[in-house]
Design a protein around this nucleic acid. Structure first.
Lengths: 514, 514
DNA sequence: CTGTCGGCACAGAGCCGACAA
DNA sequence: TTGTCGGCTCTGTGCCGACAG
């Protein structure tokens, strides 16, 4: 399985918000069971393997699959039993602080029209005006040919035309070729990126349906078409350490690790599957907490287009002893959103309220400090600040969220989050955080405004989108927070006031600024 | 890289004649250098690895790649230093002696018309009449829909029509879909097979051009289309032990083997690349021979469609010490046919004439006995006798060759071959075997007739083709050998009398009977 | 603003017999 | 016997504005 190394910012833009990759030199735990989970074959032989293996990250490669353009990481691990607390992590991945990094990216989930009909792609206006070279609107019709490189450096050309009534931006000639060669289907995302040089890039984020797990069904020519064969062949298994049968791979890794020998794993940022290489600090901190049945926890899950994080709450219904991997069984308040996440690991969730009968309100606060380490990876991966923001209804109704901040500021934000959670738990312990927020709206906005106002960036005109930028400032004149909107953003999630939160109300394309 | 296990007879029909897979329980040598040869990356780190490793074959899986339908073998090896001469090989692969094995197969190299134009496939008459369900010739035009399964069990339907002037069999509707989904190109082969139940199967044999080695060229959308990406991604690397970077894989295998730990290799039957897992007996026997500069050797190479074996001769020009792998440098009489085979291993060739200055004619005879072990694999792989035959000019002009016989009969055949070679060497030492045969024609026919006449099977009407059958006897009434033909078959090779042998005169589709 | 639809034009897929090797 | 060609038909791709959410 050949792959190209890609720029960290490009990798991040393509992977979405959730994936975390450890820094070189950091201490992590490798969880064989988590590794095995991502494969088709059940982990039979894992019994004899330790449930978690402390390792040093000796190398990380951010790669893009030659076939699918999917990004993944190759992580080299060295079981380091002897260096328990020594060795400060040296600065990890190459950052893309070079002069030609990505400074704008825009992702859109392909509609049926984008993927199927007529071979055209409807370019959201904001994307066209921000990312694409300026059109000569004197031409009739205004059109140009744009050249875009994929993650492997291959160049693709698209006819960009501004037409129709009302006028809109479209990619026509060349688009269906791209769709066919990349085998894109409705629901996949394309990620357009612009480097400082003006060079356009395009990445792909596949829909989870088109990525393995689909069972191979014999004797059905339609169902066994190229796509499914391809995915069973290349997606499920190559996620494993060496591209072969997983069970034996994981078992072999166990043997290697048992002898203190280094090994290598592949991590595919697949939404729904937690990473099986986790910062040791995060794990150590999380498992020290008092996980008791009845405690309320919340977990963030990325939205369908991987651009926002949504928080859901639940109650711990069971605590397994032994391996910390998925030791917590949680009954989610909205069970439909976590189909495969009834059992989670402590570092995936945050304690909202412990189930102690004697309610000591500020006890959880102290413990929650430890969950800051869940941001441990993110910072070291990209090595630069990241913004996430969402436009709301009209052109000027916006709300910004300083999503990943430098450590000093991040700490402040994290505390605000924790304080908020606790307040929510105390004041309305039986209501969802998202539903309970209406009463807290004013305080929240004040809080966010204080932290964020100095970090404004450009934003989309409507619908929600996320933008990344190497440049700290762009279009600051639009950065006013209004409280007269029908919906607002909370840490990347659009909340529609007065109506239940469901997946249909979120938008499907995202403009980013790192 | 997922793959389906396939029936041994199906595997054999798809792989062609040359590939040999060792039996479970047999002793083999694993050659890391040979393993490394099949990859793009040069074998830098191999110096520290032993050049050959004695192993026991603990498991063999015959598989077909989900993506490409190419067949390959996964061979589990256990370095068995301690069992040097003990442990008789237990009977290896599951044979397809079940009631529903393959009993007829037919391979054809796709012409430009088959692969590109109009979406049709020209079915050779003999294939249509032998393999396909009988047509109702009363219909105008005579046509039917046939259903064929690929190696994964997927069903494909083709419209089979008998039309045109003059009439011929064609596959039309459904064919181009198959070509596109399987990404077949001119030069690839399709292998049609019929099981005893009447079920039709289809396998694919890719042309060597379409199988890796093509370098990835960036920035060229055409050159980096799916096909080439695919091959660099899946073909070159997954040939290796664990689907990852080869050099490290081979090196790791070396380390594992060094500690006596079992390992696993993938063997892709790729024409031109000798297997790097070789029967220990064959190796031991071969390297005991006196390989001296100037000795004449012959080597069989499979024809372009992998259905026949052709013998070529050359003179040893250099003998390397150290590893037996490719220890012999040979100057071939027809250098153009062995581009990458200037250096061969002793077990690949047979001594025709040693370069002793004192010519003792019957000395080579004794040594050649050892080369019988080159058939070692073939027999154990399939576990049943194999016939190879060729029809000649007209419907009744045929010649049969008992190609793979039970050991007892095989021995006789082998002796005949050796005797012939020696005669050729002695009588016409400077002429090619194939060209020198005219004068031996009569004797040869007598010889072959004696050995072969009791093993007749059905055969194609014209051109050469190869057929396999589980049934020992079919159409015996046609089994007369005529010497009035313009060409004849010698051990799988069609010889056109009176004209120089070249690749263009061989035919491009084959009907088989195992 | 942008997703989808129906209309339309046109390229090329796909089927055919003719012909020749 | 069968590979290739030119011709023909017709499907389906791809571009378009209309319209509505």
């Amino acid at each position: 399985m050949a792959a190209d190394e890609v720029d960290p910012a490009v990798w991040k833009a393509c992977a979405g918000t959730a994936p975390r990759v450890p820094a070189v030199g950091s201490r992590v735990y490798y969880f064989p069971h988590g590794h095995a989970e991502q494969a088709a074959s059940p982990p039979d032989v894992l019994e004899a393997i330790p449930s978690m293996i402390l390792c040093c990250v000796t190398a990380v490669h951010l790669l893009a699959d030659h076939d699918t353009d999917e990004v993944f990481a190759r992580i080299q691990l060295d079981p380091c039993f002897h260096l328990l607390f020594s060795q400060a992590p040296k600065e990890g991945l190459p950052s893309s602080q070079e002069e030609d990094g990505v400074f704008l990216s825009f992702s859109k989930i392909l509609t049926a029209s984008d993927a199927n009909n007529g071979g055209g792609f409807s370019v959201p206006r904001f994307c066209a005006e921000t990312l694409l070279p300026p059109l000569d609107y004197e031409k009739r019709p205004p059109s140009q040919t744009i050249y875009v490189r994929d993650l492997h450096g291959n160049s693709w050309s698209f006819r960009h035309i501004y037409r129709g009534t009302p006028r809109r931006h479209l990619l026509t000639t060349g688009w269906s070729t791209f769709v066919n060669e990349k085998r894109l289907v409705t629901g996949d995302s394309v990620v357009f990126m612009k480097k400082l040089s003006g060079q356009l890039l395009v990445g792909i984020r596949r829909t989870s349906q088109s990525r393995g797990t689909t069972e191979y069904s014999p004797y059905n020519p339609k169902a066994t078409s190229w796509k499914i064969e391809k995915h069973t062949a290349e997606k499920v298994l190559p996620k494993n350490a060496r591209g072969e049968v997983l069970a034996s791979s994981v078992a072999e890794i166990g043997r290697l690790a048992g002898r203190g020998m280094p090994f290598e794993v592949l991590y595919y940022p697949k939404s729904g599957y937690p990473n099986f290489v986790v910062a040791a600090e995060a794990v150590d901190t999380a498992i020290k907490l008092h996980w008791t049945i009845g405690s309320r926890v919340k977990m963030s899950v990325e939205s369908e287009d991987s651009a926002r994080m949504t928080w859901f709450q639940g109650t711990i219904s069971k605590v397994t002893q032994g391996s910390p991997w998925r030791m917590l069984q949680v009954t989610w308040d909205e069970p439909e959103v976590f189909k495969n996440a009834r059992n989670v690991s402590p570092w995936q969730v945050e304690l909202v309220c412990v189930s102690s009968q004697i309610d000591t309100p500020f006890h959880p606060m102290k413990k929650l400090k430890g969950t800051e380490s869940s941001e441990f990876f993110h910072h070291q991966l990209i090595g630069m600040p990241s913004f996430q923001m969402t436009g709301l209804d009209g052109r000027n109704q916006r709300l910004f969220n300083y999503h990943l901040s430098p450590p000093s500021i991040q700490g402040a934000r994290q505390d605000a989050v924790n304080a908020l959670n606790i307040c929510d738990c105390i004041n309305q312990p039986n209501k969802l955080l998202v539903n309970g927020l209406a009463s807290l709206k004013k305080d929240l906005f004040t809080d966010l405004g204080t932290n964020i106002s100095t970090h404004s960036v450009s934003c989309p005109p409507s619908e929600n989108s996320t933008q990344t930028s190497d440049e700290k400032i762009s279009e600051p004149e639009n950065s006013t927070v209004k409280s007269s909107t029908q919906s607002f953003l909370l840490f990347g999630k659009v909340i529609h006031l007065g109506q239940p939160n469901n997946g249909d109300t979120v938008d499907e394309h995202q403009l980013w600024a790192i």
